[in-house]
């Protein structure tokens, strides 16, 4: 679509692809680390978010769209996603009936 994209050719796609493969590999490594579940979750989520960011920016070309569009998509999605996170503390109450207690 845009000139930037055409100049870069397939090379950039390949680099991103390799990065994604590597990051996916990292996920599997984390899975075999000897750490507790919450730590594992944090690490995996961080890696997954980086992966998703790379995919959205480069595979889905958000990076070469207008900055306004990047902002529109990112802010819209992230804001609404955050709204969905209110419920977590109630998850703990399934086990103990009290907030924040294990």
């Amino acid at each position: 679509m845009t000139t930037a994209q055409e100049h870069n050719g397939i090379g950039k796609d390949l680099i991103v692809y390799v990065c994604l493969l590597a990051l996916a590999g990292v996920q599997f490594v984390i899975a075999y680390q000897n750490i507790d579940a919450s730590q594992m979750l944090t690490r995996m989520l961080v890696v997954a978010c980086v992966e998703a960011g790379l995919a959205a920016l480069f595979f889905m070309h958000l990076w070469t769209e207008k900055r306004g569009f990047l902002l529109f998509v990112a802010v819209f999605t992230i804001a609404v996603l955050l709204g969905l996170q209110y419920g977590w503390t109630d998850s703990y109450r399934m086990v103990t009936g009290a907030p924040f207690s294990h």
Binding site: M1, A31, M40, V47, A48, A55, M60
Partner: peptide
């Protein structure tokens, strides 16, 4: 291109499904 967006998105979701649904249950 439009279809590609969809396909990449399916891929993107998988990036979360793998660690959360598979690897955490290893």
């Amino acid at each position: 291109e439009v279809l590609g967006l969809y396909w990449h998105f399916v891929d993107l979701v998988w990036m979360f499904v793998v660690p959360l649904v598979y690897l955490l249950n290893l």
